[in-house]
Design a protein around this nucleic acid. Structure first.
Lengths: 190, 190, 190, 190
DNA sequence: GATGAATGAGCGTTCATTCAT
DNA sequence: AATGAATGAACGCTCATTCAT
């Protein structure tokens, strides 16, 4: 049977994310999530098979949303550098709108539990990004290096910057964003 | 009276790190650490005030060791680019020798518990690195951008690469290292 | 959902009282209470916030029951001496029926934990007794002394006698009861 | 071998009493007593066989001191009523000087652990008191009732009054003492 | 005699999960 | 679908006691 109340499901996921960001995976229990979401602990088991399922589902959905927000406006007609630039700005806009998503994704990504997520489930959504890199390399605009290296100089530095500003509660200034993009682009351009 | 057994303290810290890397902060309990270390749970409380103290102590010590291994051979007589290059190689050597340290530090760094560590306790040990950046900027070899930006393009990408290879169990090839350094240097050089 | 099982709550309170009377406050743990009551330790926390809440609740309920049993039949139409005599007999009957209550109340009353009970919660139920003393003093049948002094010569001696007989397992003979009442009345009468 | 440092033994007993009066038997551990007394937990086991031995020893010594302070000045040349009056004043003086002793003795006396004390060890010291009662009864000044009844109207009421004033931190006024003695004497005199 | 180190057992409490309604 | 009741297992931590010096 299909669950009735979609808002309840969302409340559970959202509460889990907030608690995990605030107190950590280790101190976030089902009953606390239930209380925060305003439902019974038992209700959570109607929407998710168990705690791990809840957490990994949350991670996959967050990653999917992030990928969509960042990549949806990227298309093959754009110059590679402009595509990267757009991607960069999308990422920034997203982090401003949903800082929680970044913080959660980073925590989860660095915990062993991430291994219980099928990488394909996440990777699929980043497919346009992979194609962008391939195009940049074929066209000679990007260094001819493994994709994960490109990754390491595009996503992680910005993610790190974003996290830093979220934590400090300070906004990211335009010129810092500009400088950061220059660094990233210098790092990977041919 | 019996003197404190320093090897016991080390066994506790080491066991904690291994378990946290394997099962995560959330699934690493005092009694599991004790069992892994071959001591009684009560013994842990002779060496550490409580679980948080144990974890933060572990983090600070790991960071200190990392800083030492990476920075000790850096001195002011080196050209800036050579200093960065040396630092890069030190980092790689360290990660090959102590991959656990990287994995643990990343997990801890991305969990909320990191906020209970006094940043100064960690930052002090990276002071030589900060001075290196300043020198590079005064001498015009580095971009004139905030230190945390430089950071974001030097440490995090390599850390990320290192983590990736640790997880996959694959070695990092010389040419990948070379390519990665080129990216990093291109990112930050003036 | 399942409704709360009131018999379970009672079993917990009763088990706590029995164990405390037998082994003392210091040696009565939640898990022992749970075992004695035939429930899980966790179940106790459905009915009580924590151990202290369980103990103080037990004390207040015991005191309330004692007050009811002793004072309910006292009314203002009785002569003061007859009222005291009736109270005396009620007390005796109650101690014969529920010796555990006396023993527990005394142990609790003499332990520092009693300070965490709001005195008002207990005192309210002894209000008729306070009024009886006031009446006896206004009518000139009782000595004009503070209420706690009257108390000290009415309740505590009998309580002590009752405890003594409970402990020894001997019954209180009619003539001892008679003699005891005479002492008490001689102590407080004008 | 005889323990060397008598002050250490006293410090342990005194610390135990203070902690038990403040936090209760249930929350007073050997290691807390040791810390309060400024010794090692292991040292306590040089002076006492185990925790129970420490506690019962403390109780017996407190009772002995109380008996001595109260009864030493009583001798057979005194009129019975004067003897009771003197005893009364001694008791008051003692409670003013050592309120802790009263509070501890009452707590211990009402806990099941008291059963592990040989009553004879305590009763011996109250022998003069028992003889006083016998004399009073033979001479016809006291009611002809069991000794424990006399007890119940002499010691417990005053003890209760004393405890009350200790807890409230208020002094006992002369006239209250006077009134209390009158009550007690009226209770037991022939 | 005196100590701090060391411990297995137990503490009060919360956990993830299931049950009964 | 949704709930609060219920639980055995596990949590972080402290216990009374002993060990090694």
């Amino acid at each position: 049977m299909r669950p009735k109340d979609e808002t309840k499901r969302e409340a559970i996921l959202q509460s889990a994310m907030v608690l995990i960001n605030t107190y950590g995976l280790a101190h976030t229990s089902i009953s606390k999530i239930a209380k925060e979401a305003g439902v019974s602990p038992a209700t959570i088991y109607i929407y998710f098979a168990n705690k791990e399922d809840l957490l990994t589902t949350l991670y996959v959905e967050v990653r999917r949303e992030m990928a969509g927000a960042i990549l949806d406006s990227i298309d093959e007609s754009l110059e590679v550098v402009d595509a990267f630039r757009l991607l960069w700005e999308n990422l920034l806009a997203y982090y401003l709108a949903y800082p929680d998503h970044f913080v959660f994704a980073e925590q989860f990504h660095n915990a062993p539990i991430v291994d219980s997520v099928d990488p394909a489930e996440v990777d699929t959504h980043f497919e346009p990004y992979v194609r962008l890199i391939e195009r940049g390399q074929t066209q000679g605009q990007l260094k001819n290096i493994p994709a994960n290296l490109i990754n390491a100089f595009v996503f992680y530095p910005l993610t790190e910057l974003a996290k830093h500003h979220v934590k400090e509660g300070t906004p990211m200034e335009d010129d810092e964003l500009e400088a950061a993009f220059d660094c990233a682009w210098d790092a990977i351009r041919a």
